[in-house]
Design a binder for these strands. Structure first.
Lengths: 149, 149
DNA sequence: GGTGATATTGATAATGGTTATCATTATTGT
DNA sequence: ACAATAATGATAACCATTATCAATATCACC
């Protein structure tokens, strides 16, 4: 595990603890395990996958606990939900990362993360032109990735 | 009902019939009722809402039939699915319309249709820069609409 | 028009993912 | 230590969508 990730995990931990405290909630061993497992993985995990990973660490935990707490991680700004179709929701790291969009391969399902500040700017202009106050957005481009051609 | 819509319905009907035929499927009275009701509505309907509308016309129809055939309408290029969160899928007209994106109000749930060809162009460039062949995309901007401020 | 093959329908069951329930356990502040 | 409160985890409930299947309708062909 590279050093930068270690640091990020500690930072994120503090953010999570503060966020929980501000809502009168506690930082439990389960929450710690979920947070660490989630941040250590570089993948876009589902609750099911994360649940399995936490269990692998000899941690006795319930599915509901993982599902519930992933919601908290989202609310605390540490994770983001990725919903595609009717499939299981996946989560990606949000804390410490800049906003990005996704290229989604229709063959292999790969998520390629991209960013274009010009597009972001034009999106804001587009919203303004419609008297609309933008808060967040989702851009997904579906197609075929390099490997699948 | 304005004249242009009447014409559009007939055109769409032909497209639908051709699409069905090419797949060895039939154009039934239920399919006709669903198509007409769908195209006559200017709203983004759910299967449930469409089902209710068709029934209002003294048409005896089942929920499953509506759901099934909305899928066909999508496959035939007449309708588009709009999925937001875990809510019911909504459908909008696709045939005869140019592609557009949505501003979605977080308060009232309104869908405002917008289009920006510059954004589209940049999206294609972005995909190309990643050796990705784009097929379609989805851009949703969430925020607060004019009426809700 | 009749006939056999095939598609459609619609009531309902099954599915799949997410969320709610609730008794039990753990943690906190005093 | 105690009372108050939150967390957990097994499971049920929920909700939208999709599958099933017997009954019905439609088609192509004779």
């Amino acid at each position: 595990m590279p050093r930068t990730d270690m640091i990020d995990i500690k930072e994120a931990q503090e953010v999570f603890i503060d966020c929980l405290k501000s809502r009168g909630l506690r930082y439990t061993s389960q929450r710690e395990a979920i947070l660490e497992t989630f941040l250590s993985s570089m993948k876009h995990l589902t609750v099911e996958e994360l649940y399995a990973l936490v269990k692998e660490k000899n941690m006795d935990i319930g599915y509901a606990t993982v599902a519930r707490n992933m919601k908290f991680l989202v609310e605390c700004g540490i994770a983001d939900e990725i919903k595609v179709g009717n499939k299981r929701t996946r989560f990606e790291r949000h804390y410490g990362r800049q906003h990005h969009d996704h290229l989604i391969c229709l063959k292999c399902g790969a998520f390629i993360e991209v960013h274009d500040s010009n597009i972001e700017m034009l999106q804001n202009k587009l919203a303004e032109a419609n008297d609309f106050v933008p808060q967040r957005h989702k851009l997904e481009i579906y197609g075929i990735c390099r490997e699948c051609r």
